[in-house]
């Protein structure tokens, strides 16, 4: 069984995000686990990112296709809890994002006061992190819009090299 699991991990190792083709599903934390179900069959566990992310359907299809291509029989199971968080991104994924022109999350969500479980009286804490430019590294940047080309990104502009860029928001 361990070798079957290893085969699945290997088959899915190079599968990338359909919208950010430089990072793999494993590095993003979408591909959570490969395990044996109660009935003895193999399960690939994925956790969706944003609720409305249109890439999730594609990701499931890609996984099924890769498994089929490798001649492996396994189910794809979507697991909601614990909810996906950008905290799960590996350091390698963050570096790849930066090299691709997307600034990776600069804040750990688990570090936020109360981890979101606190009672809110006023506005929830606003993002206070500085967002460095992925091209020139300058910290002199400004938020253009809280939503970018996809729900998971915000639009920023570098005030030194003047390039606009995407920021992968902490989630």
């Amino acid at each position: 069984m361990e070798s079957a699991k290893a085969k699945i991990w290997a088959a899915l190792e190079h599968l990338t995000d359909p919208e950010i083709p430089v990072v793999t599903l494993r590095e993003l934390g979408i591909l959570r686990d490969v395990r044996v179900a109660v009935d003895g069959s193999l399960e690939v566990v994925i956790t969706p990112t944003y609720s409305g992310c249109p890439a999730m359907g594609q990701i499931e299809d890609d996984i099924r296709a890769s498994l089929a291509q490798a001649g492996i029989e396994a189910h794809v199971v979507t697991q909601l809890a614990p909810a996906w968080t950008t905290d799960w991104m590996t350091p390698e994924a963050k570096e790849k994002l930066r090299a691709y022109g997307i600034t990776p999350p600069q804040r750990r969500c688990a570090d936020e006061a109360g981890g979101g479980a606190h009672v809110l009286t006023f506005m929830p804490p606003r993002p206070t992190e500085t967002v460095p430019c992925p091209r020139c590294g300058s910290h002199n940047t400004t938020l253009t819009s809280q939503f970018g080309s996809t729900a998971c990104k915000a639009l920023y502009k570098c005030l030194d090299c003047l390039e606009p860029f995407d920021y992968f928001k902490p989630y």
Binding site: P82, G116, A117, R126, F147
Partner: peptide
Amino acid sequence: DKLQSSTDADLAAIAAKSLKEARYHLHH
């Protein structure tokens, strides 16, 4: 935020995801 601790675990899971999104909607 409250529904995250619902005794309905499926609803609690959806709430935990949706809360992250609602926060961005509120700030926007």
